[in-house]
Nucleic acid binder design. Structure first.
Length: 322
DNA sequence: ATGCATGAGGC
DNA sequence: CCTCATGCATA
């Protein structure tokens, strides 16, 4: 089965360790008190992080969608974006910066995770630490355009500060890093390949299935409804992320009911009834079940997503008509 | 580097 | 419910 057993919220009492590197701004020399310690000892208990473990999440009050910065108009890519001289919203500039950033970061000998933590030391208003994931995504431009724009100035500030500190090296014994006690770990559901293929096929014709549709899909693939819903949400985000590569504007391509039904049918019964199939393998501790194998996907046709739209209609009508 | 997830906001 | 920004857990 899909084991998604994470334990809901739960914060460690915090205090979590005094994290090591306090000043990761200067990784090379690793330690200059000036940049101060992340959190830990005397840290003001003011964090409203919401996550599990202990990292912070910094989005302070107010705006959200604007991210840390703001949200400039940013329209999806038209070729001729010579309209606004705003060099900061230019995808090209972002791309260039991301690359420079990564190179210089590496040159400084700092990891993505280090950068994330060090950001908190920058003490910029409203800016706290970020995860390795986010830094990685920034570098690979796998964030939304607005998110990239919001993060750029922050990372740029860090980079400058880090390079400045790298110049005047210093040394200091190091800060200890007592790793905190273990916490409950949340489990990640792992959707098996066959199911994933079915979901992708469906997504190709209808990226935004209704709640009922989602329920139907979940049923057929033997996945929890929420897992399917989240999958579609994440898929949409991915599709959107940096619309680079060209403009693929917001087409509302609506699939005919027939098309949807067709795909639903094609995904059908990937999982045998009952038999709690261990679709997702227990990632990690095997709290889970015995290996159950799933049947091969029933997709009648292996079509490229794009093709599916053009070819499926006829078939759909003939086969299913929803 | 990425997949699945949470949560704040917005409707 | 969705969108968005983010992150833990993983591969």
């Amino acid at each position: 089965m899909i084991k998604t057993n994470y334990k809901k919220h739960f914060f460690p009492q915090m205090g979590h360790h005094g994290m090591e590197g306090l000043d990761m701004l200067d990784p090379l020399t690793s330690s200059s008190m000036t940049t101060l310690a992340p959190m830990g000892e005397g840290a003001p208990p003011h964090h409203q992080l919401h996550g599990y473990g202990a990292m912070n999440h910094v989005m302070n009050h107010h705006h959200h969608a604007g991210g840390l910065g703001h949200a400039p108009p940013a329209h999806l890519g038209h070729p001729a974006a010579a309209l606004h001289p705003d060099t900061d919203t230019d995808p090209r500039e972002l791309e260039a910066f991301a690359e420079r950033f990564k190179q210089r970061r590496i040159k400084l000998g700092v990891t993505q995770a280090d950068v994330g933590k060090a950001l908190a030391n920058l003490k910029l208003p409203g800016v706290g630490a970020l995860s390795q994931s986010t830094i990685c995504r920034f570098e690979s431009l796998t964030l939304s355009h607005n998110n990239m724009i919001a993060l750029k100035p922050i990372l740029q500030a860090w980079l400058e500060e880090a390079e400045a500190q790298a110049k005047n090296k210093r040394r200091d014994p190091d800060a200890p890093s007592v790793l905190p006690a273990g916490e409950k770990k949340r489990k990640r559901t792992s959707i098996a390949a066959p199911e994933k293929r079915s979901l992708e096929a469906y997504f190709a014709v209808q990226p935004r299935p209704s709640g009922e549709k989602i329920t139907a899909i979940a049923e057929k693939l033997d996945l929890k409804k929420n897992v399917v819903r989240v999958w579609f949400c994440n898929q949409r985000q991915k599709q959107k992320r940096m619309n680079r590569s060209r403009a693929a504007p917001p087409r509302h391509h609506h699939a005919t009911p027939g098309q949807e039904q067709y795909f639903l049918d094609s995904c059908e019964r990937v999982v045998p009834r009952h038999a709690a199939a261990a679709t997702s393998r227990a990632t990690s501790h095997g709290v889970d079940a015995p290996g159950v194998h799933r049947l091969a996907p029933r997709l009648a046709l292996r079509l490229a997503p794009g093709l599916a739209l053009r070819l499926a209609p006829g078939l759909a009508r003939g086969l299913a008509v929803g």
